[in-house]
Amino acid sequence: MSRASMLAARLLLLALALGLWEALPRLGWVDDEILPPFSAVFVTALQLLQRPAIHGDLVTTGLQLGAALIISVPTGVLLGILLAENKRLAQVCEPLLYFLFSVPKSIFLPLFILTLGISFWQKVAFGCFSTILIVLMSATAAVRSVREEHVLTARSYGATRAQITRHVYLPSMLPVLLEALRLAVIFSTTAVVLAEMYASRSGIGQQIASWGESFMMRQLFAGVLIVSVTAIVINEFIRWIENRCSHWRS
């Protein structure tokens, strides 16, 4: 199958899923109090997006997410490079990090509330905590993915340190780092939204939780739709950049 027909097939699949979502309540097979039809949810989402209160929530969530990423990604990358460059440190720390990496982060959320209270920075801190390890481990992997032969070849042609960094390290590491960024966005989105749903006064996660509690199904589904579409769009955008930067990889 060609790329175009593949894409067409996927769109068809999407249309089918949405059509089913629309048809089930409309044909009365499912109560529309339980599953509001897609069109109604879509309209609700558009209406919600015009409300200043929702803007406030989205901005809050976005700021928390942004702050978490701005702190955790550079820190994680630096620590990861340090770890990759320092063999002794890696020997000691890697098993520990690997263990921490596989530990579920969400169960620590109550501790962040106990120490930082229910606040903006509590969510940022939890976001960083959930994200930093994946970034760190990816950065280590990125440094290790730079092939010794390539560095040697560059040196044998008299490349300076700066040139090696620019022309060997960066292009080899960039795709892995972008992948790390993508995962970081996924992880910290989940973390921030979860923290908002758990205990918060604002943010889209808090809104979704309260719509759920008061059985406002249209708003609830609209909120889920907004969050999902945003997450997918951001994810695809980073993936698109990733592909552009790593076209030479097969």
Partner: peptide, 19 residues
């Protein structure tokens, strides 16, 4: 498609399930 869906923070669906 599956790896796109992987980006969705699934936790937002929990209120749907409790409802």
């Amino acid at each position: 498609v599956v790896s796109s869906l992987y980006a969705v923070p699934l936790v937002v669906l929990y209120p749907v399930f409790t409802a």
